[in-house]
């Protein structure tokens, strides 16, 4: 049961690495989506129970997984998607103004 958590940590760290090290703005945004996915995976993991069914009780089930993290995951997806959309819009704007997506060149252009 530890290996999935390690995957979460690897994804989270990779995402953060992408955000702080990549020069390309689009890649930075991709980094954010990676971090967000790792958090959603973490939410699914903490709700998981071995051999549990989905929390839809049309019959009596023995083991049902935790419904709260799934609801939280839905919220997180929606918020993450909205934030990504706004980021991309700003990136497009920046590209239109300066004609480049590279952070270093942007800094040079600004002076």
């Amino acid at each position: 049961m530890v290996i999935p958590y390690v995957v979460v940590i690897i994804l989270f760290s990779l995402g953060i690495y992408t955000v702080i090290s990549k020069k390309n703005l689009i890649k930075m945004v991709i980094g954010f989506t990676i971090v967000e996915s790792s958090l959603i995976l973490l939410l699914i993991l903490i709700g998981y129970k071995p051999s549990g069914t989905a929390p839809i009780l049309d019959r009596q089930y023995e083991i049902v997984v935790d419904p709260i993290p799934q609801a939280l995951a839905l919220t997180t997806i929606i918020i993450g998607g909205s934030v990504t959309a706004v980021m991309l819009a700003l990136v497009i704007k920046i590209y239109k103004r300066y004609g480049t997506l590279n952070v270093d060149e942007l800094r040079k252009l600004r002076g």
Binding site: F12, I16, V19, L25, M28, F32, V35, E36, L39, L42, L43, I46, P69, L72, T76, V83, V86, M87, L90, V91, K93, I94, R97, L106, R110
Partner: peptide
């Protein structure tokens, strides 16, 4: 636009840590 992008990047980074702690 640039200020907004920087702001969004930093505040989203902060939100992720807060969300991780919340989870």
């Amino acid at each position: 636009i640039e200020g907004a992008f920087k702001y969004l990047i930093m505040s989203t980074l902060g939100s992720f840590f807060i969300l991780l702690a919340t989870i």
